[in-house]
Protein backbone atom coordinates (compact mmCIF):
# COMPACT_ATOMS: atom_id res chain seq x y z
CA UNK A 1 0.00 0.00 0.00
CA UNK A 2 2.70 2.35 1.01
CA UNK A 3 4.77 1.32 -2.03
CA UNK A 4 1.88 2.10 -4.38
CA UNK A 5 1.36 5.52 -2.80
CA UNK A 6 5.04 6.30 -3.19
CA UNK A 7 4.99 5.51 -6.93
CA UNK A 8 1.82 7.55 -7.35
CA UNK A 9 3.25 10.60 -5.59
CA UNK A 10 6.45 10.35 -7.66
CA UNK A 11 4.40 10.34 -10.86
CA UNK A 12 2.37 13.35 -9.68
CA UNK A 13 5.55 15.19 -8.82
CA UNK A 14 7.02 14.50 -12.25
CA UNK A 15 3.85 15.73 -13.91
CA UNK A 16 3.87 18.93 -11.88
CA UNK A 17 7.54 19.57 -12.62
CA UNK A 18 6.96 19.07 -16.31
CA UNK A 19 3.89 21.32 -16.52
CA UNK A 20 5.03 24.06 -14.16
CA UNK A 21 6.16 27.29 -15.84
CA UNK A 22 6.57 30.52 -13.93
CA UNK A 23 4.47 33.32 -15.43
CA UNK A 24 6.90 36.23 -15.65
CA UNK A 25 4.74 38.53 -17.76
CA UNK A 26 3.02 40.29 -14.87
CA UNK A 27 6.33 40.67 -13.05
CA UNK A 28 7.81 42.19 -16.21
CA UNK A 29 4.92 44.65 -16.37
CA UNK A 30 5.57 45.84 -12.82
CA UNK A 31 9.31 46.15 -13.42
CA UNK A 32 8.80 48.11 -16.63
CA UNK A 33 6.53 50.56 -14.80
CA UNK A 34 9.08 51.00 -11.99
CA UNK A 35 11.87 51.46 -14.52
CA UNK A 36 9.97 54.12 -16.45
CA UNK A 37 9.12 55.98 -13.23
CA UNK A 38 12.75 55.92 -12.10
CA UNK A 39 14.05 57.07 -15.48
CA UNK A 40 11.53 59.94 -15.58
CA UNK A 41 12.48 61.17 -12.10
CA UNK A 42 16.20 60.55 -12.57
CA UNK A 43 16.70 63.55 -14.85
CA UNK A 44 15.67 65.90 -12.04
CA UNK A 45 18.32 64.59 -9.67
CA UNK A 46 21.62 65.57 -11.18
CA UNK A 47 23.11 67.00 -8.01
CA UNK A 48 24.95 65.04 -5.42
CA UNK A 49 24.13 66.88 -2.21
CA UNK A 50 23.88 64.83 0.92
CA UNK A 51 21.99 65.76 4.02
CA UNK A 52 22.10 64.81 7.67
CA UNK A 53 19.54 63.23 9.93
CA UNK A 54 17.21 65.54 11.78
CA UNK A 55 17.80 68.66 9.66
CA UNK A 56 14.67 70.69 8.93
CA UNK A 57 15.12 72.50 5.64
CA UNK A 58 12.99 75.51 4.75
CA UNK A 59 10.93 75.57 1.56
CA UNK A 60 11.83 77.71 -1.43
CA UNK A 61 10.03 78.65 -4.61
CA UNK A 62 13.35 78.91 -6.46
CA UNK A 63 13.60 76.65 -9.51
CA UNK A 64 17.38 76.99 -9.74
CA UNK A 65 19.11 73.63 -9.49
CA UNK A 66 22.27 73.82 -7.39
CA UNK A 67 25.32 72.61 -9.33
CA UNK A 68 27.75 70.42 -7.43
CA UNK A 69 30.04 72.31 -5.10
CA UNK A 70 31.48 72.12 -1.62
CA UNK A 71 28.71 72.05 0.93
CA UNK A 72 28.47 73.06 4.55
CA UNK A 73 25.58 71.67 6.56
CA UNK A 74 24.51 73.64 9.61
CA UNK A 75 22.30 71.97 12.19
CA UNK A 76 21.51 73.28 15.67
CA UNK A 77 24.07 70.81 16.98
CA UNK A 78 27.01 70.91 14.59
CA UNK A 79 28.75 72.07 11.43
CA UNK A 80 29.46 69.44 8.77
CA UNK A 81 31.57 69.74 5.63
CA UNK A 82 31.68 66.96 3.05
CA UNK A 83 30.13 64.49 5.50
CA UNK A 84 32.75 65.31 8.14
CA UNK A 85 31.54 66.83 11.38
CA UNK A 86 34.06 69.57 12.03
CA UNK A 87 32.55 71.39 14.99
CA UNK A 88 29.88 70.95 17.64
CA UNK A 89 27.85 73.82 19.01
CA UNK A 90 27.48 74.10 22.75
CA UNK A 91 24.14 74.55 24.41
CA UNK A 92 24.02 77.19 27.08
CA UNK A 93 22.82 76.28 30.55
CA UNK A 94 19.67 78.43 30.35
CA UNK A 95 18.44 76.59 27.26
CA UNK A 96 18.87 73.07 28.59
CA UNK A 97 15.62 71.18 28.28
CA UNK A 98 13.81 73.80 26.18
CA UNK A 99 12.36 73.10 22.75
CA UNK A 100 13.99 76.15 21.22
CA UNK A 101 17.07 75.62 19.09
CA UNK A 102 19.47 77.48 21.34
CA UNK A 103 23.11 76.95 20.56
CA UNK A 104 26.28 78.95 20.58
CA UNK A 105 29.84 78.77 19.45
CA UNK A 106 32.51 77.65 21.79
CA UNK A 107 34.40 80.94 22.39
CA UNK A 108 37.73 79.21 21.74
CA UNK A 109 36.64 78.34 18.20
CA UNK A 110 36.23 82.01 17.17
CA UNK A 111 38.79 84.65 16.31
CA UNK A 112 38.96 88.06 14.58
CA UNK A 113 36.67 89.54 17.20
CA UNK A 114 34.20 86.66 17.06
CA UNK A 115 33.66 86.86 13.28
CA UNK A 116 35.70 83.94 12.01
CA UNK A 117 35.12 80.29 12.89
CA UNK A 118 38.56 78.70 13.13
CA UNK A 119 37.70 74.99 12.54
CA UNK A 120 35.54 75.96 9.57
CA UNK A 121 38.28 78.16 8.14
CA UNK A 122 40.82 75.32 8.43
CA UNK A 123 38.46 72.84 6.76
CA UNK A 124 37.64 75.27 3.94
CA UNK A 125 41.31 76.02 3.31
CA UNK A 126 42.05 72.29 3.08
CA UNK A 127 39.16 71.83 0.66
CA UNK A 128 40.36 74.80 -1.40
CA UNK A 129 43.90 73.40 -1.61
CA UNK A 130 42.50 70.05 -2.73
CA UNK A 131 40.33 71.74 -5.37
CA UNK A 132 43.23 73.83 -6.68
CA UNK A 133 45.49 70.78 -6.85
CA UNK A 134 42.85 68.93 -8.85
CA UNK A 135 42.50 71.88 -11.21
CA UNK A 136 46.26 71.95 -11.80
CA UNK A 137 46.21 68.24 -12.64
CA UNK A 138 43.05 68.55 -14.75
CA UNK A 139 43.28 68.82 -18.53
CA UNK A 140 40.73 71.67 -18.57
CA UNK A 141 42.56 74.93 -19.36
CA UNK A 142 41.62 78.52 -20.10
CA UNK A 143 42.45 80.38 -23.33
CA UNK A 144 46.04 81.06 -22.21
CA UNK A 145 46.59 77.42 -21.28
CA UNK A 146 46.55 78.04 -17.54
CA UNK A 147 44.56 75.91 -15.09
CA UNK A 148 41.03 77.14 -14.55
CA UNK A 149 40.70 79.57 -11.62
CA UNK A 150 39.27 78.46 -8.30
CA UNK A 151 35.49 78.90 -8.43
CA UNK A 152 35.00 79.57 -4.73
CA UNK A 153 31.39 78.50 -4.47
CA UNK A 154 30.04 77.24 -1.16
CA UNK A 155 26.60 75.66 -0.82
CA UNK A 156 25.01 76.27 2.56
CA UNK A 157 22.37 73.84 3.76
CA UNK A 158 21.08 75.07 7.09
CA UNK A 159 18.35 74.03 9.45
CA UNK A 160 15.47 76.46 9.27
CA UNK A 161 15.95 77.44 12.92
CA UNK A 162 19.55 78.62 12.42
CA UNK A 163 19.86 82.31 13.11
CA UNK A 164 21.45 84.89 10.87
CA UNK A 165 24.27 85.69 13.29
CA UNK A 166 25.51 82.11 12.84
CA UNK A 167 25.09 82.26 9.06
CA UNK A 168 26.92 85.57 8.95
CA UNK A 169 29.91 84.07 10.75
CA UNK A 170 29.90 81.15 8.31
CA UNK A 171 29.74 83.45 5.28
CA UNK A 172 32.46 85.71 6.64
CA UNK A 173 34.71 82.70 7.32
CA UNK A 174 34.02 81.29 3.87
CA UNK A 175 34.86 84.60 2.20
CA UNK A 176 38.10 84.76 4.20
CA UNK A 177 38.97 81.31 2.83
CA UNK A 178 38.27 82.40 -0.75
CA UNK A 179 34.69 81.13 -1.13
CA UNK A 180 32.97 84.30 -2.29
CA UNK A 181 29.76 82.94 -3.75
CA UNK A 182 27.14 81.33 -1.55
CA UNK A 183 24.31 79.06 -2.59
CA UNK A 184 21.57 78.76 -0.01
CA UNK A 185 19.88 75.39 -0.34
CA UNK A 186 16.29 74.64 0.60
CA UNK A 187 13.61 72.13 -0.28
CA UNK A 188 11.74 72.92 -3.45
CA UNK A 189 8.07 73.73 -3.04
CA UNK A 190 5.89 71.15 -4.78
CA UNK A 191 8.98 69.20 -5.66
Amino acid sequence: MAFRRSIQSRRTRRRIQKDFELQLTSLMDVLVIILIFLLKTYSASTTNFASVNGIQLPMTGSRDLPPDSLQVIVTPEALTIDNQRIMDFVQNAAAAGSDEAVYQFNPTSLDEGGRRIVPLYDALMKARQRAELLQVKSKARDAQGNPLPFEGVLAIQADKRIRYDTLRKIMYTAAAAGYRTFRFLAMKKNG
Binding site: A155, F182, A186, K188
Partner: peptide, 10 residues
Protein backbone atom coordinates in the same frame (compact mmCIF):
# COMPACT_ATOMS: atom_id res chain seq x y z
CA UNK B 1 16.17 65.22 -2.06
CA UNK B 2 14.75 67.90 -4.34
CA UNK B 3 16.72 71.06 -3.63
CA UNK B 4 16.45 74.56 -4.96
CA UNK B 5 19.14 77.19 -4.51
CA UNK B 6 19.43 80.93 -4.08
CA UNK B 7 22.79 82.36 -5.04
CA UNK B 8 24.35 85.36 -3.37
CA UNK B 9 27.83 86.82 -3.85
CA UNK B 10 29.98 88.17 -1.07
Amino acid sequence: LSLGSIESPF
